[in-house]
């Protein structure tokens, strides 16, 4: 074997092992989340008590308990593998970022993993207090005056946690603390994609803060893409 062949073989081994590591052989689940019926009307928020926030919004923002897109798309739905995938043994190194800006939580729904660092920043000129209301995790309630460093926290159990700011009662958000990295939050079109799933039988769950959750069973055999759609029933009140 010449040097050239040896080089090629080496590269091939590298490529194959890299491929095995990344699991490109895995399948993908993608789909769309929609609603049927009439969702609750989202009301404009009067922030007049906090002028420094109010003036950041040319038109008042509305409540965000049901955020919809075109074609009945439903946003802010957390789609995740609730059973069938192993729990991640180590949390991702990069922090999940949650920002308070204009007296609003960005993003409204933040999904991250168990033991992953959650980094909360205050971009406003006013104090906020971040008060997540967990049932199984440890509860805390911290104020963040303007100009103070970001708050770092972690959760060690999976849970959907409502988050509120007591100082600005309209500010509500959600943390989705999940066991593995296979999750997505539906965006503008209501669409989501869960790539790189090794073959296996999965329970895939979609969770919405107002409409609860739904699950479906999906089996991935190879590198195919399977489509799963969720339809939530919307109520006007």
């Amino acid at each position: 074997m010449g040097i050239k062949q040896g080089f090629v073989a080496g590269v091939a081994v590298l490529v194959v092992s890299a491929a095995l590591y990344a699991g490109p052989s895995g399948g993908t689940i993608s789909g769309k989340v929609t609603y049927e019926g009439t969702p609750a009307k989202q009301k404009p928020i009067d922030m007049s008590k906090e002028p420094s926030c109010a003036q950041q919004h040319a038109t008042p923002i509305t409540t965000e308990t049901v955020v919809t897109g075109p074609n009945n798309a439903l946003e802010n739905v957390v789609v995740y593998i609730s059973a069938g995938a192993p729990d991640d043994s180590t949390a991702p190194g990069q922090p999940a970022k949650f920002t308070q800006k204009g007296c609003q939580y960005l993003p409204h729904v933040l999904a991250f993993e168990v033991n992953q660092t959650l980094e909360i920043a205050n971009d406003d000129q006013t104090s906020h207090n971040i008060h997540p209301l967990p049932k199984v995790n440890r509860e805390w309630n911290k104020s963040q005056p303007p100009g103070t460093p970001p708050i770092s926290e972690k959760y060690d159990k999976p849970e959907f946690i409502p988050v509120k700011c007591n100082i600005h009662p309209w500010m509500h958000g959600n943390f989705a603390v999940l066991k593995n990295s296979h999750y997505a939050v539906s965006q503008g079109e209501g669409s989501f994609t869960l790539p790189n799933l090794p073959p296996g039988k999965y329970t895939i769950t979609a969770w919405h803060e107002s409409y609860g959750d739904q699950s479906q069973e999906v089996t991935i055999t190879g590198s195919e893409t399977k489509t799963v759609n969720f339809v939530f029933k919307a109520k006007p009140y």
Partner: peptide, 14 residues
């Protein structure tokens, strides 16, 4: 009462 939904008083329109 559901402040995130603008129901500050605890009305039950349903």
């Amino acid at each position: 009462i559901d402040e995130g939904n603008g129901n500050y008083f605890g009305l039950d329109p349903a």
